[in-house]
């Protein structure tokens, strides 16, 4: 590393390791994408580009149902967790210190302190009782579970945005006899919006990517995209799996690009 030389811009060892790291990060993903477009169904031989595997995936009812479930779960869980996290962030970030504020903070971040597999199994055990008692087997359980672990993720950027906002504008609005609600809607909310958007996108991606919690909480026969992919993997790596992986990859990348754009325009 940097032991021998100390010129900030000329450290050949550092640059080499960095470039190797970037290549190591991207080559496997590129291979995966190339395989998804490969007309040959044996991954090693290139027989020209095709969209056949994507078509096959989209033609597959099980895949379509899993994709729909993923979209429903991610949208609902991201929306719910963002709303809950926004309210909570407004409660703990500004104004004078209230009684129990530290406790609220710890509880909001609690899902981050527990290993994912433990969170998932513990909730599975409890929800199994609920499933038995109510007889309801729907997607609701997965949505509730996702909402829970998305709250701290949505909370993060919203709180960061709020703590950077000073109270002057809101105080001015209140001094001019605007009601608390009107002030919130016309002053606080527009200022907070970039934070809320960032929180929503983070929660959306975290939910969309989740496989451990979904696979343990879902009822038999229900699939989200990652759990469907996990199930397909048990057989063998096929071109259709590469195509589905590539689709998930594109979804994530467009969301990062979108959030990149949002943060750019804010500055």
């Amino acid at each position: 590393m940097a032991e021998k030389r100390f010129d900030v811009t000329h450290m050949p060892g550092v640059a080499t390791i960095a470039i190797v790291t970037f290549l190591a990060l991207y080559i496997p993903v590129l291979i995966l994408v190339v395989n998804a477009f490969n007309a040959s169904d044996t991954a090693g031989r290139w027989e020209g580009a095709t969209l056949r595997w994507f078509a096959a995936a989209l033609d597959n009812t099980a895949f379509r149902r899993a994709a729909l479930n993923s979209a429903i779960v991610a949208l609902t869980a991201a929306t719910l967790s963002t709303v809950l996290a926004t309210a909570a962030a407004l409660a703990v970030t500004r104004g004078r210190h209230i009684k129990g504020q530290g406790g609220i903070f710890v509880i909001l971040n609690q899902p981050l302190l527990v290993p994912e597999i433990v969170f998932a199994i513990a909730l599975m055990v409890v929800l199994a009782q609920v499933k038995q008692a109510t007889g309801y087997q729907g997607l609701g359980y997965v949505i509730v579970a996702h909402t829970t672990f998305c709250i701290p993720f949505a909370f993060l950027p919203i709180r960061a945005r709020l703590s950077g906002m000073d109270l002057t504008l809101e105080t001015a609005s209140m001094d001019l006899y605007a009601s608390r609600f009107y002030t919130f809607r016309r002053v606080t909310l527009p200022l907070l919006l970039p934070g809320i958007l960032a929180g929503f996108m983070l929660a959306f991606v975290i939910s969309l990517d989740n496989v451990v919690v979904s696979s343990l909480i879902k009822s038999p026969g229900q699939e989200t995209l990652p759990t469907y992919l996990m199930g397909e993997l048990r057989r063998n790596l096929t071109s259709e799996i590469y195509a589905i992986s590539a689709l998930l990859l594109f979804a994530s990348i467009s969301i990062v690009a979108a959030s990149w754009f949002v943060t750019r325009t804010r500055q």
């Binding site: 809950l84 909570a88 129990g100 609220i104 055990v125 409890v126 579970a145």
Partner: peptide, 28 residues
Amino acid sequence: AETRRRWSLALPALTVITLCSILPLVVM
């Protein structure tokens, strides 16, 4: 009044986490 108002703002999030994350851990 402010303490009450702000606690009630945080309450929905706290309830969800308590019921779905803390309680199951206690059960475990």
